[in-house]
Design a protein around this nucleic acid. Sequence first.
DNA 1: CTGTATCCAAATAGATACTG
DNA 2: CAGTATCTATTTGGATACAG
Lengths: 124, 124
Amino acid sequence: MESEFADPSFPPFDNCLKKIRAIDDTMELLAGKWKLSILARLCYKPMRYSEILNDIEPLSGKVLSRELKDLEMNGLINRCVGDTKPPSVTYSVSEYGMSLRDLSDKIAEWGLLHRDRIRSSFKK
Amino acid sequence: MESEFADPSFPPFDNCLKKIRAIDDTMELLAGKWKLSILARLCYKPMRYSEILNDIEPLSGKVLSRELKDLEMNGLINRCVGDTKPPSVTYSVSEYGMSLRDLSDKIAEWGLLHRDRIRSSFKK
DNA sequence: CTGTATCCAAATAGATACTG
DNA sequence: CAGTATCTATTTGGATACAG
């Protein structure tokens, strides 16, 4: 069932369709510019709504609300309401969300390694 | 310079700011729902414009054009024009783009591992 | 403090037709 | 074949005000 492919420097393409579907799925789950950024922050420390809002500079409350709701709906984070007045709400990653931590570390690693090149892309 | 943090189950937050910035950078470079999906395909096999277009079902020509242009501008892929008539244009990953392959494998791995849970999220 | 609602501006996506 | 141009529809974003 192995398909042959002319260029031996590339692996058989058919074997990779599963990977590509899996990538599409993952990206759809993490779609939205901020989801992974929020998730990464929460991997390192539980945070409150206003704390996240202040920490991610160009992010409006409306967008943060929606992203948090999405993440919670998908089971990636937990929302914990403190019994205080005024209310304090703390967000933290769930076990499921924590399983993305390795991935987020890998992304960070790549970003650090290629930092200069990435940033010079943005200037153009 | 190590900051202490109350909850020992989380690493010091300050150490992680660099990671978070790096994640934001990387995500900005790969922003757009399709960039990583295109890149992943090209990691496994060079492809032509129409081939990619047919392969990624819900992707319009206009969007593909733009994504390819972005990827090329950022040095992640190469565009190779064949000397034929009608013209054939082949896209392939650059060496720089290939450095994302480990990452794309990791994303695929996570997606495969959590496939059922991801897909059940979409149904809701 | 933690949101939601509303209104409006801007960016993005799809369809179609068209060019070299 | 490999795109670009144009128009329109949809989505997304920011600002502000307001509620629990």
